[in-house]
Every structure is written in C-alpha cells, then in structure tokens.
C-alpha cells in the first residue's frame, strides 16, 4: 500500500492541481478568474506530461561526447524520455496562444460592458 502511494503520488498532485483549475473555469463568475483557472488547468497538464518522461537514474537527453569522439553505444535507459518534453514545448505555445486570445476577448468584453462579472454583463444584455 505504501509503495503504491509512493509510486503514484505525483500523478495525484497534478490531478488535484488540474481540478483546482477546472473548478475555476466552470465555478467562478469573474471572467479573469476563469482565465486564471484555465491557465492552472493547462499548466497542470504540462506537469503531468513532463512527469511521464522521468526515468530513475536518467539524465538530460543530451548525448555526452557528442561531436569529435568515437561513436559509443548509447544506452537509452540512462537518458530521460525526450518526447514528452517536445510535446509540451508545443503545448506551452498552444496554451500561451489560447491565453492571449482569451485576454483579447476579455478586453473586448470590458470595453463594451465596463465590468468583468458575468452576472452583471447578463443584466446589461436584457
């Protein structure tokens, strides 16, 4: 049981973090709080992916003695998995872009209604 917790607890931390963000997205009424929730959610997903790359005893995926040396047999197990890092580099950019567009839309809303509370905006509309 204790081993089970030790071997899984990092996933649980990220899931808790994700759920905090998720609650912010669907539970909060303020638009900026929703955006912050979105950011937390996405960052937690990044952490989750990165944690899958880890290998016990692995180091950075940069091959030592790269150029100018004799080609040596490279042991994959001694370097961490590079693929999740690459995926998350792409995902970070995607998420930053989403954040940018979200904030642009929030600015457009603020210009029109002078408030960021969803309920007040809805009152405005009717």
């Amino acid at each position: 049981m204790f081993d089970f917790i030790i071997s899984k607890y990092n996933y649980w931390i990220y899931i808790v973090l994700m759920m905090i963000g998720f609650y912010g997205m669907i539970g909060k009424k303020n638009l900026i709080k929703k955006v912050i929730g979105m950011n937390i959610f996405q960052t937690a997903i990044i952490l989750f992916f990165i944690s899958t790359a880890a290998k016990r005893g692995g180091t950075l995926p940069i091959i030592e003695h790269g150029h100018g040396h004799e080609m040596q047999a490279i042991e994959a197990a001694s370097y961490v998995n590079p693929l999740p890092h690459v995926l998350m580099l792409t995902a970070i950019v995607v998420m930053v872009s989403t954040l940018g567009v979200a904030l642009a839309i929030v600015i457009a809303i603020y210009k029109r209604y002078n408030t960021l509370e969803e309920e007040e905006i809805l009152k405005h509309k009717i």
Partner: peptide, 27 residues
C-alpha cells in the same frame, strides 16, 4: 464577445480533456 468567451472556455476544456486522453494513452 461574451458568447465567444464561453465558447473559448468550453472549447479549451474540450481540448484539454482530449490532451489528457492522449497523455493517458501515451503512458
């Protein structure tokens, strides 16, 4: 703008869930 913002929030939740699914499959 408000309709679009709601779409953005819902769409981002959808995309994040999809990405989580991809992550689980990858693991």
């Amino acid at each position: 703008p408000l309709a679009s913002f709601r779409y953005l929030i819902m769409g981002t939740i959808g995309a994040c869930f999809y990405l989580l699914g991809v992550g689980y499959l990858y693991i």
